[in-house]
């Protein structure tokens, strides 16, 4: 149970129940898709990039509590960041998921996912929207 509580921290439960920026974004100028063919979970992440910064970030789709909460956290964290900062954030999140290690500067909402590295089958869930966001950023570079 201890591990489970760690996995489903209050932050995650909250974002799962009340996902932020959970809508399509008609004004988006970049978007990415994340799909887990093993379970059918799928998300779309929408970015509205203005000059160098991510003016708006939203998401749509369905999946488990972990993937949904992590998509929601993604939108709150990346909004307002520059493209370069956003890519750094995604990499930092990936490190948390894979190692469970929390850098000092890491926002609490991202650190909440550190328990997931103990559940290898669920890492993919946590990364789904973040991979979609990376895809959107790379697409926008072209």
């Amino acid at each position: 149970m201890q591990n489970l509580l760690e996995l489903y921290q209050a932050v995650i439960l909250d974002h799962n129940r009340n996902p932020r920026n959970f809508r399509t974004l008609p004004a988006a100028n970049a978007q990415g898709r994340g799909e887990n063919p093993a379970c059918g979970d799928q998300y779309e992440v929408f970015l509205r990039i203005e000059k160098e910064a991510l003016a708006e970030v939203t998401f749509q789709g369905s999946g488990c509590a972990i993937s949904r909460a992590s998509a929601s956290v993604l939108t709150t964290e990346l909004t307002g960041q520059t493209r370069a900062e956003a890519k750094e954030s995604i990499k930092a999140f990936q490190t948390v998921i894979e190692t469970g290690e929390i850098a000092e500067s890491l926002p609490v909402s991202m650190a909440a996912f550190s328990g997931i590295h103990k559940f290898p089958a669920r890492r993919k869930c946590a990364m789904l929207a973040w991979e979609a966001a990376m895809q959107a950023l790379e697409e926008a570079n072209r």
Binding site: L4, C39, C64, A65, R68, A121, R122
Partner: peptide, 13 residues
């Protein structure tokens, strides 16, 4: 209210 993945993780525990 609960996704199958979360359910399966809880069952596994």
């Amino acid at each position: 209210k609960v996704h199958a993945h979360d359910l399966v993780t809880f069952a596994d525990m």
